[in-house]
Amino acid sequence: MASSRTGSSVWSVPPASTDAWYVYGVVPKGTSPDVFANAGAEIELVETGELTAVASRVPLEEYGAEALEANVKHPEWLEEKVNAHNAVLAAGVGVTTVLPFRFGAIYRDEEQVRGMLTKRPELRDALARLDGAVELGVKALLDPEVLRARLAHDRGLDAEVGSGRAYMLWKQLERELDEEVRSFAGSCADESHERLAAAADDARVNPAQHPSVAGGEMLLNGAYLVRSDRDAAFRDVLRELQARYGDDGVTYELTGPWPPYNFVGDEEQA
């Protein structure tokens, strides 16, 4: 932390305290530090009552209020920290129950972390509710050209454009195909989500990602809370969907298991 430009003393924290505590999330009490041994960061476990905060000491020169405000404006910095945040929590997934915090829960010292844990008994309920569950992401991507080729083929219309009349017919077909592709996209997304949600303990639909990010037209960006005893059945549903819609140009992508980021909002929010 830089000293004051005016020369007057403006230390708002004791000089000895050059670290802050960054909290990634919460796990049940008694969780072994070994869980986070390969998480890519030095982890401090702060245990109070039934809860254990997963934290790291971070330098104030990077995470102090002013520095942080500047740092979060840099996408490269934020990307790195966000990836690190996720990597730490991911280390606990499947090993213990993980309550993921959103980026940016930062405390002055260990006591403040303990204070947060004691003030939030609802975290205990969330741990119980999410016991043994992970989040799986499913994205359905459509290659519209594959679908269009198939739809055209079904009509016996692979023919090349020739005469002016053929051109007019072709333009009309194009419009019809556009309509069919849109209609297919909607019904495929709905059915996929309904079937996956039925196989899961809870489900969320998130906004589709941009094609340049997603690598195709995203029909579905779903998050599913799946308990370990339902994991195999959930994956079976996904395989069935792939078998059914693969020839239409749809590719399903499974991500995770993730900490249940999508299932700790609302009721636990500050």
């Binding site: 802050a20 909290v23 999330g25 919460v26 995470y63 102090g64 209020a65 942080l68 309550l99 993921p100 915090f101 959103r102 980026f103 940016g104 829960a105 930062i106 405390y107 002055r108 403040q112 947060m116 939030r120 975290l123 969330a126 900490p259 980021y261 999508n262 700790v264 909002g265 636990e268 929010q269 500050a270």
Partner: peptide
């Protein structure tokens, strides 16, 4: 996503 908790900083 994730739990929103206001820390000290």
């Amino acid at each position: 996503k994730g739990i929103v908790i206001a820390g000290d900083i």
